[in-house]
């Protein structure tokens, strides 16, 4: 924003873009009756008494989805989950296409598109992907722990530990 160059009185208000002209968030608030989110924000204090305070849903299907081709919107997820999930879902032979995107860096949202063959549904492919990735993580953790122990048991490490213990003993004695 440039600094103010005119005095407060001079500044014509029309110069500012009206809030009405600003594009609303492309992410439509779920179940919103009048779709204008910006407008809603301005009317402070006016709360719908029937609106329930609910835990925001982490995943939802975006409009325009079918059984076998769906876009999912994840809240509070990013590349960490998106890319790994995309990979594991693509590994599923029933899946024709899978991709993820973070539509805008300042919105904490991640979108995942899944298109499957007729043998399964997009939602099922997602559920399977999540489960598969969790299983894969189990294997990685187990493998790491096994290898870490194995490393600790190598003669070199055993000798190092022994030396360390001796050094500590010597330090205590003195």
């Amino acid at each position: 924003m440039p600094g103010r160059t005119k005095t407060r009185d001079d500044a014509p208000e029309e110069v500012d873009t009206s809030m009405d002209d600003a594009p609303t968030s492309a992410q439509q608030p779920a179940e919103e009756e009048n779709g204008d989110a910006m407008q809603e924000d301005e009317e402070e204090g006016e709360e719908d008494p029937f609106e329930e305070e609910e835990e925001p849903q982490r995943v939802r299907i975006l409009p325009g989805s079918s059984e076998t081709a769906a876009s999912f919107e994840f809240l509070k997820e990013g590349h960490t989950l998106g890319n790994a999930l995309r990979y594991i879902i693509m590994k599923n032979p029933d899946v024709e296409f899978c991709a993820y995107a973070i539509p805008h860096p300042s919105e904490d949202k991640m979108n995942l598109r899944i298109q499957t063959y007729d043998t399964t549904t997009a939602a099922a492919a997602l559920a399977k992907g999540l489960q598969d990735l969790e299983d894969l993580c189990d294997v990685v953790a187990d493998e790491f722990w096994t290898q870490r122990e194995k490393f600790e048991a190598t003669p070199e490490q055993v000798r190092k530990r022994q030396e360390e213990a001796e050094r500590r003993q010597a330090a205590q004695a003195s």
């Binding site: 995943v59 299907i61 989805s65 024709e96």
Partner: peptide, 25 residues
């Protein structure tokens, strides 16, 4: 993370998504 999502998916079967008709990929 994954467990949380699996749990969330199981809870809301269908995920309030309105399938507005089949749509060609």
């Amino acid at each position: 993370k994954l467990a949380g999502l699996i749990h969330g998916l199981g809870e809301s079967e269908g995920m309030n998504g309105e399938y507005d008709g089949p749509r060609s990929p």
